[in-house]
Simulated assay, not measured.
Amino acid sequence: MPTLSELFDSPSPVALVTGSGAPRVGRAIATHLASLGCHIAMHANTSVDEAEAAAVTIREQHQVEVIVTVGPLDDDEVPSRLVRQTHEHFGRLDILVNSAAIWRPSKLQNITADEMRRYFDINTIASFLCARAAAEIMAKQTRGGSIINIGDWATGRPYLDHAAYFPSKGALEVMTRSLAVEFSQMNPLVRVNCVQPGPVLLDDSVSETKRTKIATSTLVGRVGTPHHVAHAVQFLCENDFVTGVCLPVDGGRGIYAPDGMQVGLNTG
């Protein structure tokens, strides 16, 4: 299997990772891609200071160039601007990871139409706009490019109090397949895939008792890490015969239903 450098015919492929400012899954993906020799465009909205500090660390540890792009993804002009800034700075764009997302528990009766729209604006529409803008650049590149959406393992088995969040994440799965078809007509080397993390990043407020229950809810008997997601992103980027796929990275949680198990998980 070719390395990223071989696949994209560049010693330093370029990756834009949205939602990589805060120390969550997006940050882990950006750091991992940097360790593979990629130049990185991080993205942050409210976590700009954290992103700038992380950029310094990534530069020093992996000897790659890192820039920070900024903006709220519920502004329709921001996604294309992030892509444009990345391309203008580096002169290419090989990988896009749509990792930015919002989520919080909310009782069904309290969800407003505006809240639903905000979930779709950030979790779904922004990913579409970033992907389309990236594909327009990638289609002109001899080696195309790889677009990865970050979904959620539980869209097939949603849990309570996230009735606004899950529809926005479920739409990413259909969008992944649809855009894989669309972008292939622009350049067959532009691929679109999706990673669906399971319990890989638990909130600090989760008690040890609940952590144990979450661990035993997986077939592998443990909680995963953001690095498991980052490695899946690497695989989907490197394997150029895979497109339109939604890959669960959940320790088997999606096919396993322990009696009485009902937990809310923060996937990053």
Rank of each mutant, 00 (worst) to 15 (best):
D9R: 11
A28H: 00
P258H: 11
E50N: 08
G26W: 00
V17K: 03
P258K: 03
P258Y: 09
R27I: 10
Q85S: 14
L4A: 00
Y256F: 15
Q61S: 13
V245G: 00
Q196H: 07
L129P: 12
N123T: 05
L236F: 12
D259A: 15
A232R: 04
E88T: 07
P167D: 13
Q63L: 15
R81K: 15
D250S: 02
G244V: 04
A230R: 02
D9F: 08
E50Q: 14
I111T: 06
N193V: 04
T216Q: 15
S80L: 09
G91Y: 06
Q61W: 03
T155I: 15
C194T: 02
G254F: 01
M1K: 06
P2R: 12
E52P: 04
I29C: 09
G91Q: 00
D74I: 00
R191K: 09
Q196C: 10
A133Q: 00
Q109E: 15
T124I: 02
H32E: 13
F8P: 07
V195I: 12
D49A: 13
G151S: 14
R27M: 14
E238N: 03
G151Q: 06
I255W: 06
V190W: 05
A135P: 03
A171G: 10
A100G: 04
S12E: 10
P258Q: 08
S217G: 13
I102R: 03
R177M: 15
V223S: 02
N110R: 11
S99W: 09
A171L: 09
F241P: 02
P199C: 11
A163N: 10
N149F: 04
V200Y: 06
D240A: 08
N266M: 11
V70Y: 09
V195W: 08
T243P: 03
E52S: 12
I255C: 10
P158H: 06
A126I: 02
D49Q: 12
H39G: 05
S184C: 07
R143V: 10
E77L: 13
T243Q: 05
T225N: 10
L172T: 11
F120Y: 14
Y165F: 14
Q109M: 12
E52G: 04
V220L: 14
K210I: 11
A134G: 00
G91S: 04
A44G: 13
N45H: 14
N193G: 03
C237R: 01
S12K: 15
P23T: 09
R117T: 14
M186E: 11
V233T: 07
N45C: 13
G144V: 04
V174A: 15
A131K: 05
G26E: 03
H62N: 13
